[in-house]
Design a protein around this nucleic acid. Structure first.
Lengths: 203, 203
DNA sequence: ACCTGAACACCGTTCAAGT
DNA sequence: ACCTGAACACCGTTCAAGT
């Protein structure tokens, strides 16, 4: 009969894993602490030991999402540096495209989680951590811009403002394409990054 | 004692108004049909006459949001046409800035509603209406782009792809600035529209 | 046509008590 | 330290019955 031990072992991470799956499969409205407890085989009060309330669990999910998104963006930057194409002339557009692809690679399969990450309903103390996480993401884009400026491939000007423009475009595209089912995401992404680089004004 | 009449009169719109206020003031998690019924002075089962379930009320809120956003964007386009500055040479950037301001004018005070509008958790039949509403918004931007192309102020190319780039940037900026409290929204907006027009590449 | 009241099956949260 | 079981105050939804 394989009795469950009294201690779950790692209830906290089991709850988070289960919650993220439910979020992805059935949406945020379907998330209930009692159901997560059932799935973990513990009493409905047990989650209270690990998360002071439901919002605390959502906060933890959002934070872990930012960490993984940041890691994906950093990895896109790292692999680009190893790319021999990095030595030739026009590379910033490629870098931005790599970042864009990494962002979409996270955003599209984790659309509901991304909503949660950017939801402005978190507790006041965790909000600072989440705001810092957003700042870290912006810093990655800003790095790419500053590097591009040093290489003479990005226009002069406040790199923060330029990075913010790029980040807005990427996030907006992610938001749109998660609902709208853009036909060819990568094709659209290439077009968007190119328009960003060359501008909408006449040649 | 002013007895309430048996019929509310316009319970449906009272529920929507009340729901939107709750959404804005206390967030989506605080929305409950029973509380809305209490505020309207009817029994907790009464809302069921007007909305088949809670999601149907959220769908109605989202749809009304799109209608108002669309009206705001159209009005921005109309007032611009009356603007005598519309007769001189470089006007498309001004048009896009007006659209951007109209978008933010709706998005920032209605951040929670905007989340709901773009939430991918609506019933399948209403989803088509919402997708159509997003399409209408894109059409407004597309119009501005096509007009700009005819005036020689926007680069040649698929106007749909260009409009999608602009819309992505605006929506992403709205999403960011709703959480992040950008210091000077209008200043950032001007910079963003300008970068969009002139591009990030070197001069 | 519109609403009520009771009923049902769920929730989140708390707290004494158990291991 | 971690979990249980009962309790409390909420939910959404349905449905006969009332006006």
């Amino acid at each position: 009969m394989a009795e469950r031990p009294y201690h779950h072992g790692d209830l906290r991470s089991a709850l988070l894993t289960s919650a993220e799956r439910t979020l992805a499969e059935r949406g945020p409205a379907a998330l209930s602490l009692r159901e997560l407890a059932r799935e973990a085989g513990v009493s409905h009060a047990a989650p209270g030991r690990h998360f002071k309330d439901k919002q605390a669990l959502l906060d933890a999910l959002a934070l872990s999402g930012f960490q993984r998104l940041q890691a994906a963006l950093e990895q896109a930057g790292d692999t680009r540096k190893l790319d021999p194409a990095g030595t030739d002339g026009t590379n910033t557009e490629g870098y931005l495209l790599a970042l864009a692809r990494a962002y979409m690679g996270f955003a599209l399969p984790n659309a509901a989680l991304l909503d949660l990450m950017y939801a402005r309903k978190h507790d006041s103390d965790i909000s600072e951590q989440l705001a810092a996480a957003v700042g870290d993401l912006l810093a990655i884009v800003l790095n790419a811009i500053a590097e591009g400026q040093r290489a003479g491939e990005i226009v002069e000007g406040d790199p923060g403002a330029i990075a913010f423009t790029v980040a807005s475009t990427l996030h907006g595209f992610a938001s749109f394409s998660a609902n709208n089912t853009v036909e060819d995401v990568d094709e659209s992404l290439k077009a968007i990054v190119h328009f960003l680089m060359t501008g909408l004004g006449p040649r």
